[in-house]
Amino acid sequence: MAETGQPIISVRHLTAAYGGRVIIDDVSFDVARGEVFVILGGSGSGKSTLLKHMIGLYPPASGEVLIEGRDLIQAFGDERERILRSFGVGYQSGALFGSMTLIENVRLPLEEFTDLPEEAMNVIARLKLSLVGLGPFAGLMPAELSGGMQKRAAIARAMALDPGIIFLDEPSAGLDPITSAELDHLILSLRDTLGITFVVVTHELASIYAIADRVIMLDKRTKKIIAEGRPEELRDHAADPWVRRFFNRQASETEE
């Protein structure tokens, strides 16, 4: 499904810092259209920070983020809003609005950004919810659902406007293996049928092997990308022993 040509997202010389503390130092990479792109790294390596810079939540210290060729960081007003609407984000804890039912959560972007009739919005929201297996729960409040269901509902909400890109922050953390595998399956079938590009932050190895077309791995010490490529390749042939250990799930002491 991946179309050749211009990358859908490109990050150029991005430096991220909180106050004076640099988290990510001069990182550049591209995400191709229709691929599942996974950001990896040990705890505290700045994966979520990188994601939050890519979706424009935090302004970077320097560098640029281009989404479909448009600069997210420099953009403002209508232009910025249009770029923001071209992708959906599923947050780590779901971030569903607690005062609304599931279907109202999914309908919110439709109500705000489209001229669809009421009935159309309800049908669309129902379809998105049933896509993630939550059709019968449409009328429930987020608090009445399990953590995994909240996460899936968050993905349904991220898809409400049929964005071309979906960012997911730790989608399978805290899910049981079956639900997690179902989620992987969902991601792949959305990629295949809708051509959606996924940018996923995760450290679930099983999930990485199942879905990732390409991964980048962030290093805590150098604050740069330590490895980039297909996960199987990195597991077997990575130059850095730490990367091989990560993919083979070995503790630090066992190598040396």
Binding site: T101, N122, R126, S130, G135
Partner: peptide, 23 residues
Amino acid sequence: QDQAALLALYTAGLESLAAETSR
């Protein structure tokens, strides 16, 4: 073909639209 696949994806898990959407 891809449009039909999309429609199939959306309707696969769908039981009915008529279920209650309000309290």
